[in-house]
């Protein structure tokens, strides 16, 4: 599903060039469960952003479903994100003035889906994550775990092929973190490819395939 060939990502910081990613080669098949671990500054978040088309590689080739997506125009990339990729962030990124169900339905709203259809789908997604009773609550009326599950419901509502999660439990206590991980793994069991970036070794060990990064390179790639 995903083929990365010789991906480099450089940042200019003052007069220095920082190599966030160096010659990354990576193939990912549909339905995989992958964790990416490594110390701060090892490039794992940059890799995730490039996989999610939120960032552009400085050089290299990125094929998504055999399509060279890094050569697409901004709006075409937006369409790929909208149709195939869901995101879960460490800081939830919910819109504070919208109710939980409106937050969940937001990707469909942006895609121009009529209210009946999108509300129905949003309800189903919230039902599946056990937060259906929180539909009309606003984010500030929800606990951290509930907020992250709203964010997961939002990520899954477009029925994407790939979900990218950047430290999804980083801001949660152990119990809520556990619920969130189980929710994400539940999606993976339904065939959605799941990639999680994390600091937490216990969390990383749960994935079937574990990538370890250091200094912009993948230093180990273990399957179990």
């Amino acid at each position: 599903m995903i083929e990365l060939t010789n991906i480099n990502r450089n940042f200019e910081v003052g007069e220095e060039t920082v190599h966030a990613l160096r010659d990354i080669n990576l193939n990912i098949d549909a339905g995989e469960y992958i964790s990416i671990m490594g110390p701060s500054g090892s490039g794992k978040s940059t890799l995730l952003n490039i996989l999610g088309l939120l960032d552009q590689p400085s050089s290299g080739d990125y094929r998504f479903n055999s399509q060279a997506v890094n050569q697409l125009a901004d709006d075409e990339q937006a369409q790929v994100r909208r149709e195939h990729i869901g995101f879960v962030f460490q800081f939830f990124h919910l819109i504070p003035r919208l109710s939980a169900i409106d937050n969940v339905a937001l990707p469909l709203t942006l895609a121009g889906i009529v209210p009946e259809t999108r509300n129905q789908k949003a309800k189903a997604a919230m039902q599946a994550l056990g937060i259906a009773d929180r539909a009309t609550h606003r984010p500030d009326q929800l606990s951290g775990g509930q907020r992250q599950r709203v964010a997961i419901a939002r990520a899954m509502i477009t029925e994407p092929q790939l979900i990218l999660a950047d430290e999804p439990t980083g801001n949660l206590d152990r119990a809520s973190g556990h619920e969130v991980i189980e929710a994400l793994e539940g999606l993976n069991q339904k065939g959605i490819t799941l990639i999680i970036v994390t600091h937490d070794p216990a969390l990383g060990q749960r994935a079937c395939r574990r990538l370890n990064m250091d200094d912009g390179k993948i230093v180990s790639d273990l399957n179990s």
Binding site: L54, R81, H93
Partner: peptide, 16 residues
């Protein structure tokens, strides 16, 4: 900006 970034991540085009 965070909201705009989110909208973009969710697939909003520049025009939107």
């Amino acid at each position: 900006t965070a909201e705009i970034g989110l909208l973009k991540a969710l697939g909003a085009s520049d025009t939107e």
